[in-house]
Design a protein around this nucleic acid. Structure first.
Lengths: 95, 95
DNA sequence: CGCATGTTTCGATAATTGTAGAAATATAAA
DNA sequence: TTTATATTTCTACAATTATCGAAACATGCG
């Protein structure tokens, strides 16, 4: 794993609103949640949520799918699993 | 663990220079490295490194001790271990 | 079509962050 | 005590980020 890639993912997840969004989506399971429901549950303004969602999407932590007018968001675990594994291996034991 | 505490640590580690510094210190082991050596190895300007070191210190990821004129930096693993454990438990399996 | 709902883009603003030169501080050595 | 070395603080500036109202876009319904 590239240092910069790891840093980038950590910085995207390292924002309290984005971390809350991601955790909510993890809890929501494989179907995810509509944007509007995330917005309501976390009490964030629409444009603000949209901004954060796109940053999470940008590093592959979230995917979206549409059903009618409703856009669902689903947490993607693989990128975070890789980073957590990396940190565990490289940063959790002093050499 | 508080959401905000986790987010804060992730954001501090989520910067490529700081991540490099931390990884270097992890590799350096329990004695750590002098600030000057970190600076040289990563080719960073003094004030810039000092800034980043203090941010790492601020979230408990680094500690320093002095020996004569030389200030050593040592990686502190516990906070990261906690966060990695948290992420592993809360964010690596869809409910 | 015209309207309602869900979400995004635009645009502006405030706040935070990263960077590094110059000057200051700390410690030790000559 | 002068000088050298190690590091930080001060300061300023550029860049990025977070926020959200208003307007626009997307989709489906009557």
């Amino acid at each position: 794993m590239e240092n910069d890639v790891v840093a980038k993912l950590l910085s995207e997840l390292g924002h309290s609103t984005r971390l809350s969004v991601f955790r909510l989506l993890v809890k929501a399971g494989p179907n995810g949640l509509p944007v509007g429901e995330v917005q309501q549950r976390l009490a964030i303004a629409g444009p603000t949520l949209s901004h954060h969602l796109h940053r999470l999407i940008g590093v592959g932590l979230v995917r979206q799918y549409r059903e009618g007018r409703t856009l669902y968001c689903v947490a993607q675990l693989d990128p975070l699993r890789e980073v957590v594994g990396f940190l565990d291996r490289e940063c959790c034991t002093l050499s």
